[in-house]
Design a protein around this nucleic acid. Structure first.
Lengths: 247, 247
DNA sequence: CGAAATGTTGAGGCTGGTCAAAGCTCGTGG
DNA sequence: CCACGAGCTTTGACCAGCCTCAACATTTCG
Protein backbone atom coordinates (compact mmCIF):
# COMPACT_ATOMS: atom_id res chain seq x y z
CA UNK A 1 0.00 0.00 0.00
CA UNK A 2 2.93 2.32 0.64
CA UNK A 3 3.56 3.05 -3.01
CA UNK A 4 -0.04 3.08 -4.15
CA UNK A 5 0.04 6.74 -5.15
CA UNK A 6 3.69 7.02 -6.17
CA UNK A 7 3.96 8.22 -9.79
CA UNK A 8 0.38 7.17 -10.28
CA UNK A 9 -0.96 8.11 -13.71
CA UNK A 10 2.29 9.81 -14.67
CA UNK A 11 2.74 9.83 -18.39
CA UNK A 12 5.12 7.04 -19.31
CA UNK A 13 6.43 6.60 -15.79
CA UNK A 14 3.81 4.74 -13.79
CA UNK A 15 5.24 1.94 -11.71
CA UNK A 16 4.94 -1.77 -12.48
CA UNK A 17 3.90 -4.20 -9.75
CA UNK A 18 7.43 -5.52 -9.28
CA UNK A 19 8.84 -2.00 -9.14
CA UNK A 20 6.43 -1.06 -6.40
CA UNK A 21 7.37 -4.21 -4.54
CA UNK A 22 11.06 -3.38 -4.85
CA UNK A 23 10.55 0.06 -3.39
CA UNK A 24 8.35 -1.21 -0.60
CA UNK A 25 11.05 -3.73 0.21
CA UNK A 26 13.52 -0.87 0.50
CA UNK A 27 11.61 0.87 3.27
CA UNK A 28 13.56 0.75 6.50
CA UNK A 29 11.14 2.52 8.78
CA UNK A 30 7.73 4.19 8.94
CA UNK A 31 7.26 7.11 11.28
CA UNK A 32 4.88 9.92 12.07
CA UNK A 33 5.74 13.56 12.72
CA UNK A 34 3.55 16.10 14.44
CA UNK A 35 2.37 19.22 12.61
CA UNK A 36 4.89 21.99 11.85
CA UNK A 37 7.96 19.96 12.69
CA UNK A 38 11.23 20.47 10.88
CA UNK A 39 12.30 17.16 9.38
CA UNK A 40 15.56 18.13 7.69
CA UNK A 41 17.63 21.27 7.57
CA UNK A 42 19.60 22.81 4.72
CA UNK A 43 23.22 21.72 4.74
CA UNK A 44 22.74 18.48 6.66
CA UNK A 45 24.07 15.39 4.91
CA UNK A 46 21.16 13.06 4.21
CA UNK A 47 21.39 9.29 3.96
CA UNK A 48 17.69 8.61 3.47
CA UNK A 49 14.91 9.78 1.24
CA UNK A 50 11.30 9.66 2.35
CA UNK A 51 8.05 8.61 0.84
CA UNK A 52 5.12 10.66 2.11
CA UNK A 53 2.24 8.38 3.06
CA UNK A 54 -0.10 10.76 4.79
CA UNK A 55 -0.28 14.45 5.56
CA UNK A 56 1.23 17.51 3.93
CA UNK A 57 4.87 18.51 3.90
CA UNK A 58 6.76 21.51 2.62
CA UNK A 59 10.18 22.57 1.44
CA UNK A 60 11.16 26.18 2.02
CA UNK A 61 13.89 28.79 2.09
CA UNK A 62 13.82 31.58 4.61
CA UNK A 63 15.10 35.11 4.49
CA UNK A 64 17.03 37.04 7.04
CA UNK A 65 13.93 38.25 8.81
CA UNK A 66 12.54 34.76 9.19
CA UNK A 67 9.96 35.04 6.44
CA UNK A 68 9.60 31.81 4.52
CA UNK A 69 9.19 31.13 0.86
CA UNK A 70 7.83 27.67 0.22
CA UNK A 71 9.47 26.16 -2.84
CA UNK A 72 7.42 22.98 -2.88
CA UNK A 73 4.52 21.32 -1.18
CA UNK A 74 4.06 17.58 -0.98
CA UNK A 75 1.01 15.37 -0.72
CA UNK A 76 0.62 11.65 -0.07
CA UNK A 77 2.36 9.61 -2.74
CA UNK A 78 5.21 12.06 -3.28
CA UNK A 79 8.75 10.82 -2.96
CA UNK A 80 10.36 13.55 -0.91
CA UNK A 81 14.03 14.41 -1.02
CA UNK A 82 14.70 11.99 -3.79
CA UNK A 83 17.03 14.68 -5.04
CA UNK A 84 19.00 14.29 -1.84
CA UNK A 85 20.24 10.96 -3.19
CA UNK A 86 22.51 12.46 -5.87
CA UNK A 87 22.92 15.85 -4.16
CA UNK A 88 23.82 14.36 -0.74
CA UNK A 89 23.05 17.65 0.99
CA UNK A 90 19.91 19.73 0.75
CA UNK A 91 19.82 23.39 -0.15
CA UNK A 92 16.57 23.98 1.79
CA UNK A 93 14.66 22.94 4.88
CA UNK A 94 11.93 20.31 4.95
CA UNK A 95 9.04 20.45 7.40
CA UNK A 96 5.62 18.99 8.01
CA UNK A 97 2.60 21.24 7.70
CA UNK A 98 0.10 18.78 9.13
CA UNK A 99 0.74 15.59 11.05
CA UNK A 100 2.52 13.40 8.52
CA UNK A 101 3.45 9.76 8.16
CA UNK A 102 6.48 8.93 6.09
CA UNK A 103 8.36 5.84 5.00
CA UNK A 104 12.13 6.05 5.08
CA UNK A 105 14.19 4.66 2.19
CA UNK A 106 17.95 4.48 2.78
CA UNK A 107 20.13 5.78 -0.04
CA UNK A 108 22.04 2.50 0.03
CA UNK A 109 18.83 0.81 -1.08
CA UNK A 110 18.34 3.26 -3.92
CA UNK A 111 21.93 2.58 -4.90
CA UNK A 112 21.09 -1.11 -5.07
CA UNK A 113 17.97 -0.46 -7.09
CA UNK A 114 20.16 1.38 -9.55
CA UNK A 115 22.15 -1.79 -10.19
CA UNK A 116 19.18 -4.12 -10.27
CA UNK A 117 16.53 -2.14 -12.08
CA UNK A 118 17.87 0.67 -14.24
CA UNK A 119 14.40 1.30 -15.62
CA UNK A 120 13.13 2.03 -12.14
CA UNK A 121 15.92 4.46 -11.47
CA UNK A 122 14.89 6.22 -14.63
CA UNK A 123 11.41 6.59 -13.21
CA UNK A 124 12.78 8.00 -9.98
CA UNK A 125 14.79 10.46 -12.05
CA UNK A 126 11.53 11.33 -13.77
CA UNK A 127 9.95 11.99 -10.38
CA UNK A 128 12.63 14.54 -9.51
CA UNK A 129 12.18 16.21 -12.90
CA UNK A 130 8.49 16.48 -12.23
CA UNK A 131 9.32 18.43 -9.10
CA UNK A 132 11.47 20.69 -11.24
CA UNK A 133 8.62 21.22 -13.70
CA UNK A 134 6.43 22.23 -10.79
CA UNK A 135 9.16 24.65 -9.64
CA UNK A 136 8.98 26.25 -13.08
CA UNK A 137 5.23 26.66 -12.86
CA UNK A 138 5.70 28.27 -9.46
CA UNK A 139 8.23 30.68 -10.99
CA UNK A 140 5.65 31.67 -13.55
CA UNK A 141 3.11 32.10 -10.78
CA UNK A 142 5.34 34.39 -8.72
CA UNK A 143 6.83 36.28 -11.62
CA UNK A 144 3.82 36.94 -13.80
CA UNK A 145 0.55 36.56 -11.90
CA UNK A 146 -1.15 39.03 -9.59
CA UNK A 147 -2.21 38.02 -6.11
CA UNK A 148 -5.55 36.54 -7.12
CA UNK A 149 -4.02 34.70 -10.05
CA UNK A 150 -1.33 33.22 -7.80
CA UNK A 151 -3.75 31.78 -5.30
CA UNK A 152 -6.06 30.56 -8.07
CA UNK A 153 -3.11 28.94 -9.81
CA UNK A 154 -2.05 27.15 -6.67
CA UNK A 155 -5.55 25.86 -6.07
CA UNK A 156 -5.85 24.60 -9.65
CA UNK A 157 -2.50 22.85 -9.39
CA UNK A 158 -3.36 21.30 -6.07
CA UNK A 159 -6.69 20.10 -7.34
CA UNK A 160 -5.01 18.44 -10.32
CA UNK A 161 -2.30 16.84 -8.20
CA UNK A 162 -4.71 15.56 -5.58
CA UNK A 163 -7.06 14.31 -8.26
CA UNK A 164 -4.27 12.32 -9.83
CA UNK A 165 -3.49 10.87 -6.39
CA UNK A 166 -7.14 9.97 -5.86
CA UNK A 167 -7.56 12.64 -3.18
CA UNK A 168 -9.86 15.05 -5.01
CA UNK A 169 -13.04 14.39 -6.93
CA UNK A 170 -12.05 17.11 -9.36
CA UNK A 171 -13.93 19.91 -7.60
CA UNK A 172 -13.74 19.35 -3.87
CA UNK A 173 -10.83 18.28 -1.71
CA UNK A 174 -9.57 18.44 1.84
CA UNK A 175 -6.64 20.82 2.28
CA UNK A 176 -5.45 21.41 5.81
CA UNK A 177 -3.54 24.61 5.11
CA UNK A 178 -3.94 28.01 6.72
CA UNK A 179 -4.09 31.30 4.88
CA UNK A 180 -0.61 31.95 6.27
CA UNK A 181 0.59 28.83 4.45
CA UNK A 182 -0.95 30.07 1.21
CA UNK A 183 0.86 33.35 1.77
CA UNK A 184 4.22 31.59 2.10
CA UNK A 185 3.50 29.66 -1.07
CA UNK A 186 2.32 32.61 -3.14
CA UNK A 187 4.77 35.24 -1.93
CA UNK A 188 2.04 37.34 -0.32
CA UNK A 189 1.05 38.43 3.18
CA UNK A 190 -1.58 36.61 5.19
CA UNK A 191 -3.80 39.66 5.14
CA UNK A 192 -3.76 39.89 1.40
CA UNK A 193 -4.42 36.19 0.94
CA UNK A 194 -7.52 36.73 3.00
CA UNK A 195 -8.71 39.48 0.69
CA UNK A 196 -7.97 37.30 -2.33
CA UNK A 197 -10.01 34.45 -0.90
CA UNK A 198 -12.91 36.79 -0.40
CA UNK A 199 -12.62 37.92 -4.00
CA UNK A 200 -12.58 34.35 -5.29
CA UNK A 201 -15.64 33.69 -3.17
CA UNK A 202 -17.48 36.79 -4.40
CA UNK A 203 -16.68 35.93 -8.00
CA UNK A 204 -18.16 32.48 -7.42
CA UNK A 205 -14.94 30.79 -8.46
CA UNK A 206 -13.86 28.98 -5.34
CA UNK A 207 -14.56 28.45 -1.64
CA UNK A 208 -12.05 27.55 1.03
CA UNK A 209 -13.17 27.12 4.61
CA UNK A 210 -12.57 24.65 7.43
CA UNK A 211 -9.86 22.89 5.46
CA UNK A 212 -12.10 22.15 2.50
CA UNK A 213 -11.59 23.59 -0.97
CA UNK A 214 -14.57 23.69 -3.27
CA UNK A 215 -14.02 24.83 -6.83
CA UNK A 216 -17.28 26.28 -8.05
CA UNK A 217 -16.17 27.17 -11.55
CA UNK A 218 -13.14 25.10 -12.64
CA UNK A 219 -12.86 26.70 -16.07
CA UNK A 220 -13.22 30.20 -14.64
CA UNK A 221 -10.65 29.56 -11.94
CA UNK A 222 -8.21 28.09 -14.45
CA UNK A 223 -8.68 31.10 -16.72
CA UNK A 224 -8.08 33.51 -13.85
CA UNK A 225 -4.90 31.56 -13.05
CA UNK A 226 -3.75 31.04 -16.64
CA UNK A 227 -3.46 27.43 -15.52
CA UNK A 228 -2.38 24.79 -18.01
CA UNK A 229 -1.85 21.39 -16.36
CA UNK A 230 0.55 20.07 -19.01
CA UNK A 231 3.54 20.52 -16.69
CA UNK A 232 2.15 17.93 -14.30
CA UNK A 233 2.66 15.21 -16.91
CA UNK A 234 -0.54 13.47 -15.92
CA UNK A 235 -1.68 10.65 -18.14
CA UNK A 236 -4.36 11.84 -20.55
CA UNK A 237 -6.66 8.97 -19.61
CA UNK A 238 -7.10 10.26 -16.10
CA UNK A 239 -8.15 13.71 -17.18
CA UNK A 240 -9.82 16.03 -14.72
CA UNK A 241 -13.51 16.41 -15.34
CA UNK A 242 -14.61 19.78 -16.66
CA UNK A 243 -11.19 21.30 -16.95
CA UNK A 244 -10.52 22.15 -20.52
CA UNK A 245 -7.00 22.33 -21.71
CA UNK A 246 -6.24 25.96 -22.61
CA UNK A 247 -4.59 26.95 -25.89
CA UNK B 1 36.98 20.81 -25.68
CA UNK B 2 33.22 20.48 -25.88
CA UNK B 3 32.80 19.30 -22.32
CA UNK B 4 35.50 21.42 -20.76
CA UNK B 5 33.05 23.35 -18.62
CA UNK B 6 30.41 20.68 -18.06
CA UNK B 7 29.91 20.06 -14.34
CA UNK B 8 33.25 21.67 -13.72
CA UNK B 9 34.04 22.06 -10.03
CA UNK B 10 30.70 20.58 -9.01
CA UNK B 11 30.89 19.04 -5.61
CA UNK B 12 31.23 15.30 -6.02
CA UNK B 13 30.11 15.29 -9.63
CA UNK B 14 32.96 16.59 -11.76
CA UNK B 15 33.60 14.51 -14.85
CA UNK B 16 36.47 12.07 -15.33
CA UNK B 17 38.49 12.16 -18.53
CA UNK B 18 36.83 9.03 -19.92
CA UNK B 19 33.39 10.37 -19.06
CA UNK B 20 34.06 13.55 -20.95
CA UNK B 21 35.31 11.51 -23.89
CA UNK B 22 32.16 9.40 -23.84
CA UNK B 23 29.93 12.45 -23.96
CA UNK B 24 31.98 14.08 -26.67
CA UNK B 25 31.68 10.89 -28.66
CA UNK B 26 27.92 11.10 -28.32
CA UNK B 27 27.67 14.47 -30.05
CA UNK B 28 25.91 14.13 -33.38
CA UNK B 29 26.08 17.69 -34.56
CA UNK B 30 27.31 21.17 -33.68
CA UNK B 31 25.30 24.15 -34.81
CA UNK B 32 24.94 27.86 -34.28
CA UNK B 33 21.73 29.81 -33.77
CA UNK B 34 21.27 33.53 -34.22
CA UNK B 35 20.26 35.73 -31.30
CA UNK B 36 16.67 35.52 -29.98
CA UNK B 37 15.75 32.38 -31.88
CA UNK B 38 13.34 29.84 -30.50
CA UNK B 39 15.08 26.48 -30.36
CA UNK B 40 12.33 24.28 -28.91
CA UNK B 41 8.71 24.81 -28.03
CA UNK B 42 6.66 23.50 -25.14
CA UNK B 43 4.84 20.31 -26.02
CA UNK B 44 7.14 19.20 -28.83
CA UNK B 45 8.58 15.71 -28.42
CA UNK B 46 12.36 15.99 -28.14
CA UNK B 47 14.83 13.33 -29.22
CA UNK B 48 17.99 15.28 -28.46
CA UNK B 49 19.48 17.20 -25.61
CA UNK B 50 21.96 19.98 -26.19
CA UNK B 51 25.23 21.06 -24.68
CA UNK B 52 25.71 24.82 -24.76
CA UNK B 53 29.19 25.67 -26.02
CA UNK B 54 28.95 29.39 -26.51
CA UNK B 55 26.42 32.15 -25.94
CA UNK B 56 23.47 32.50 -23.60
CA UNK B 57 20.20 30.61 -23.75
CA UNK B 58 16.96 30.80 -21.81
CA UNK B 59 13.97 28.73 -20.84
CA UNK B 60 10.71 30.57 -20.31
CA UNK B 61 6.97 30.39 -19.87
CA UNK B 62 4.73 33.06 -21.27
CA UNK B 63 1.42 34.42 -20.14
CA UNK B 64 -1.65 35.17 -22.15
CA UNK B 65 -0.53 38.69 -22.95
CA UNK B 66 2.81 37.55 -24.29
CA UNK B 67 4.84 38.57 -21.25
CA UNK B 68 7.58 36.10 -20.52
CA UNK B 69 8.87 34.72 -17.29
CA UNK B 70 12.31 33.22 -17.65
CA UNK B 71 12.62 30.08 -15.54
CA UNK B 72 16.28 29.44 -16.29
CA UNK B 73 19.24 30.95 -18.03
CA UNK B 74 22.13 28.95 -19.42
CA UNK B 75 25.77 29.72 -19.96
CA UNK B 76 28.53 27.82 -21.77
CA UNK B 77 29.08 24.42 -20.21
CA UNK B 78 25.46 23.86 -19.28
CA UNK B 79 23.74 20.72 -20.49
CA UNK B 80 20.43 22.04 -21.69
CA UNK B 81 17.24 20.03 -21.83
CA UNK B 82 18.82 17.08 -20.16
CA UNK B 83 15.49 16.77 -18.41
CA UNK B 84 13.90 16.22 -21.81
CA UNK B 85 15.50 12.79 -21.84
CA UNK B 86 13.24 11.29 -19.16
CA UNK B 87 10.38 13.75 -19.66
CA UNK B 88 10.29 13.33 -23.45
CA UNK B 89 8.30 16.54 -23.88
CA UNK B 90 9.14 19.96 -22.52
CA UNK B 91 6.81 22.08 -20.44
CA UNK B 92 8.42 25.35 -21.58
CA UNK B 93 10.06 27.05 -24.56
CA UNK B 94 13.79 27.25 -25.12
CA UNK B 95 15.39 30.17 -26.95
CA UNK B 96 18.75 31.79 -27.53
CA UNK B 97 19.38 35.22 -26.05
CA UNK B 98 22.65 35.85 -27.87
CA UNK B 99 24.14 34.01 -30.82
CA UNK B 100 24.74 30.54 -29.47
CA UNK B 101 26.65 27.43 -30.48
CA UNK B 102 25.35 24.11 -29.26
CA UNK B 103 26.32 20.46 -29.54
CA UNK B 104 23.48 18.01 -30.05
CA UNK B 105 23.39 14.74 -28.12
CA UNK B 106 20.76 12.22 -29.26
CA UNK B 107 18.72 10.62 -26.50
CA UNK B 108 19.61 7.20 -27.94
CA UNK B 109 23.22 7.97 -27.01
CA UNK B 110 22.27 8.94 -23.48
CA UNK B 111 20.34 5.69 -23.29
CA UNK B 112 23.52 3.83 -24.29
CA UNK B 113 25.56 5.75 -21.73
CA UNK B 114 23.08 4.57 -19.14
CA UNK B 115 23.95 0.95 -19.89
CA UNK B 116 27.69 1.48 -20.18
CA UNK B 117 28.45 3.98 -17.45
CA UNK B 118 25.86 4.12 -14.68
CA UNK B 119 28.08 6.46 -12.69
CA UNK B 120 27.99 8.96 -15.51
CA UNK B 121 24.21 8.81 -15.71
CA UNK B 122 24.19 9.60 -12.01
CA UNK B 123 26.21 12.72 -12.75
CA UNK B 124 23.81 13.75 -15.47
CA UNK B 125 20.97 13.27 -13.01
CA UNK B 126 22.93 15.47 -10.64
CA UNK B 127 23.11 18.14 -13.35
CA UNK B 128 19.33 18.20 -13.68
CA UNK B 129 18.99 18.45 -9.91
CA UNK B 130 21.32 21.40 -9.92
CA UNK B 131 18.95 23.13 -12.30
CA UNK B 132 16.15 22.37 -9.84
CA UNK B 133 18.18 23.84 -6.97
CA UNK B 134 18.61 26.99 -9.04
CA UNK B 135 14.85 27.04 -9.67
CA UNK B 136 14.36 27.04 -5.92
CA UNK B 137 16.71 29.95 -5.45
CA UNK B 138 14.78 31.80 -8.14
CA UNK B 139 11.55 31.10 -6.25
CA UNK B 140 13.06 32.65 -3.17
CA UNK B 141 14.18 35.60 -5.25
CA UNK B 142 10.73 36.23 -6.72
CA UNK B 143 8.76 35.45 -3.60
CA UNK B 144 10.77 37.20 -0.90
CA UNK B 145 13.08 39.86 -2.34
CA UNK B 146 12.26 43.39 -3.43
CA UNK B 147 13.21 44.63 -6.87
CA UNK B 148 16.75 45.67 -5.95
CA UNK B 149 17.34 42.44 -4.08
CA UNK B 150 16.15 40.39 -7.02
CA UNK B 151 18.49 41.98 -9.51
CA UNK B 152 21.36 41.86 -7.02
CA UNK B 153 20.64 38.20 -6.34
CA UNK B 154 20.66 37.37 -10.03
CA UNK B 155 23.96 39.17 -10.53
CA UNK B 156 25.55 37.36 -7.57
CA UNK B 157 24.35 34.03 -8.87
CA UNK B 158 25.54 34.74 -12.38
CA UNK B 159 28.93 35.84 -11.12
CA UNK B 160 29.29 32.61 -9.15
CA UNK B 161 28.17 30.43 -12.04
CA UNK B 162 30.40 32.15 -14.56
CA UNK B 163 33.31 32.07 -12.16
CA UNK B 164 32.92 28.35 -11.77
CA UNK B 165 32.87 28.05 -15.58
CA UNK B 166 36.01 30.17 -15.85
CA UNK B 167 34.10 33.07 -17.39
CA UNK B 168 34.32 35.57 -14.55
CA UNK B 169 37.31 36.69 -12.53
CA UNK B 170 35.08 36.96 -9.47
CA UNK B 171 34.22 40.62 -9.93
CA UNK B 172 33.94 41.40 -13.62
CA UNK B 173 32.31 39.42 -16.39
CA UNK B 174 30.80 39.85 -19.82
CA UNK B 175 27.02 39.50 -19.84
CA UNK B 176 25.27 40.26 -23.11
CA UNK B 177 21.80 40.74 -21.64
CA UNK B 178 19.51 43.75 -21.95
CA UNK B 179 17.60 45.33 -19.10
CA UNK B 180 14.48 43.81 -20.66
CA UNK B 181 16.05 40.37 -20.18
CA UNK B 182 16.75 41.14 -16.53
CA UNK B 183 13.13 42.18 -16.20
CA UNK B 184 11.91 38.85 -17.58
CA UNK B 185 14.21 37.05 -15.17
CA UNK B 186 13.30 39.07 -12.09
CA UNK B 187 9.57 39.45 -12.67
CA UNK B 188 9.82 43.23 -13.08
CA UNK B 189 9.29 45.80 -15.81
CA UNK B 190 12.12 47.12 -17.95
CA UNK B 191 11.60 50.59 -16.58
CA UNK B 192 11.94 49.45 -13.02
CA UNK B 193 15.04 47.37 -13.73
CA UNK B 194 16.57 50.56 -15.03
CA UNK B 195 15.83 52.36 -11.77
CA UNK B 196 17.25 49.43 -9.81
CA UNK B 197 20.46 49.49 -11.82
CA UNK B 198 20.84 53.17 -11.09
CA UNK B 199 20.37 52.49 -7.41
CA UNK B 200 23.00 49.72 -7.41
CA UNK B 201 25.32 52.14 -9.17
CA UNK B 202 24.66 54.97 -6.73
CA UNK B 203 25.20 52.67 -3.77
CA UNK B 204 28.56 51.67 -5.26
CA UNK B 205 27.58 48.02 -5.33
CA UNK B 206 27.61 47.16 -8.99
CA UNK B 207 27.94 48.55 -12.52
CA UNK B 208 26.41 47.13 -15.67
CA UNK B 209 26.99 48.85 -18.97
CA UNK B 210 27.85 47.79 -22.52
CA UNK B 211 27.44 44.13 -21.66
CA UNK B 212 29.93 44.21 -18.84
CA UNK B 213 29.10 43.61 -15.20
CA UNK B 214 31.46 44.96 -12.59
CA UNK B 215 30.79 44.11 -8.98
CA UNK B 216 32.29 46.87 -6.89
CA UNK B 217 31.37 45.49 -3.49
CA UNK B 218 30.83 41.71 -3.59
CA UNK B 219 30.00 41.40 0.09
CA UNK B 220 27.63 44.35 -0.01
CA UNK B 221 25.87 43.07 -3.09
CA UNK B 222 25.50 39.60 -1.60
CA UNK B 223 24.09 41.10 1.59
CA UNK B 224 21.58 43.20 -0.35
CA UNK B 225 20.55 40.02 -2.20
CA UNK B 226 20.61 37.69 0.80
CA UNK B 227 22.73 35.55 -1.48
CA UNK B 228 24.14 32.29 -0.21
CA UNK B 229 25.86 30.30 -2.97
CA UNK B 230 25.45 26.90 -1.29
CA UNK B 231 22.69 25.91 -3.71
CA UNK B 232 25.11 26.00 -6.62
CA UNK B 233 27.01 23.03 -5.17
CA UNK B 234 30.34 24.45 -6.21
CA UNK B 235 33.41 22.67 -4.92
CA UNK B 236 34.85 24.46 -1.90
CA UNK B 237 38.30 24.53 -3.43
CA UNK B 238 37.26 26.84 -6.21
CA UNK B 239 35.80 29.45 -3.90
CA UNK B 240 35.03 32.90 -5.19
CA UNK B 241 37.49 35.48 -3.97
CA UNK B 242 36.13 38.00 -1.51
CA UNK B 243 32.69 36.54 -1.19
CA UNK B 244 32.09 35.54 2.35
CA UNK B 245 29.62 32.83 3.06
CA UNK B 246 26.68 34.41 4.92
CA UNK B 247 25.31 32.95 8.14
C1' DC C 1 -15.08 27.11 29.04
C1' DG C 2 -11.08 29.61 28.04
C1' DA C 3 -6.94 30.35 25.42
C1' DA C 4 -4.56 30.29 21.28
C1' DA C 5 -4.63 30.12 16.58
C1' DT C 6 -6.80 31.60 12.55
C1' DG C 7 -9.61 34.56 9.86
C1' DT C 8 -11.57 39.33 8.76
C1' DT C 9 -11.72 44.16 8.06
C1' DG C 10 -10.19 49.12 7.72
C1' DA C 11 -6.98 53.11 7.03
C1' DG C 12 -3.00 54.68 5.11
C1' DG C 13 1.52 54.36 2.81
C1' DC C 14 5.13 52.70 -0.35
C1' DT C 15 6.89 49.89 -4.08
C1' DG C 16 6.73 49.01 -8.48
C1' DG C 17 3.63 49.41 -12.71
C1' DT C 18 1.96 52.35 -16.68
C1' DC C 19 2.38 55.64 -20.09
C1' DA C 20 4.96 58.80 -22.54
C1' DA C 21 8.92 61.12 -24.31
C1' DA C 22 13.62 61.85 -25.08
C1' DG C 23 18.68 60.49 -25.22
C1' DC C 24 22.16 56.96 -26.56
C1' DT C 25 24.63 53.47 -29.21
C1' DC C 26 25.81 50.93 -32.81
C1' DG C 27 25.33 48.80 -37.23
C1' DT C 28 24.09 49.77 -42.05
C1' DG C 29 23.90 51.87 -46.24
C1' DG C 30 24.33 55.95 -48.94
C1' DC D 1 32.56 58.98 -43.30
C1' DC D 2 28.42 60.54 -42.01
C1' DA D 3 23.28 60.13 -41.66
C1' DC D 4 19.81 57.30 -40.42
C1' DG D 5 17.16 54.14 -37.84
C1' DA D 6 16.33 50.38 -34.68
C1' DG D 7 16.91 48.88 -30.36
C1' DC D 8 18.16 49.98 -25.87
C1' DT D 9 18.45 53.08 -21.87
C1' DT D 10 16.91 56.83 -19.07
C1' DT D 11 13.72 59.90 -16.87
C1' DG D 12 9.28 61.97 -15.17
C1' DA D 13 4.42 62.02 -13.66
C1' DC D 14 0.92 59.49 -12.04
C1' DC D 15 -1.44 55.55 -10.19
C1' DA D 16 -2.71 50.77 -8.43
C1' DG D 17 -1.76 46.78 -5.95
C1' DC D 18 -0.09 44.97 -2.12
C1' DC D 19 1.98 45.77 2.51
C1' DT D 20 1.78 47.49 7.32
C1' DC D 21 -0.31 48.13 11.47
C1' DA D 22 -4.06 47.56 14.31
C1' DA D 23 -8.26 45.91 16.06
C1' DC D 24 -11.73 42.61 16.39
C1' DA D 25 -14.35 38.21 15.20
C1' DT D 26 -14.42 33.38 14.77
C1' DT D 27 -12.89 28.76 15.10
C1' DT D 28 -10.44 25.10 17.18
C1' DC D 29 -8.92 22.47 20.73
C1' DG D 30 -7.22 21.36 25.34
Amino acid sequence: MFTERLLRDKRGASLEVNERARIEGAISEVKTFGPRKIVARAGEPLTNSTLLLEGIMSRYLDDRTGLRQLVAIHFPGDFLDLHAFPLKVLDHDVATLTTATVATVPHAEIEAIGDEMPQLIRKLWFATLLDAAIHRAWLFRLGRLDATGRVAHFLCETNARLFSAGLSDGRRFALALTQADLAEICGLTTVHVNRVMRQLREEQLCLFRSSLVEILDPAGLAARAQFNPAYLYIDDDSQLPSVQRPK
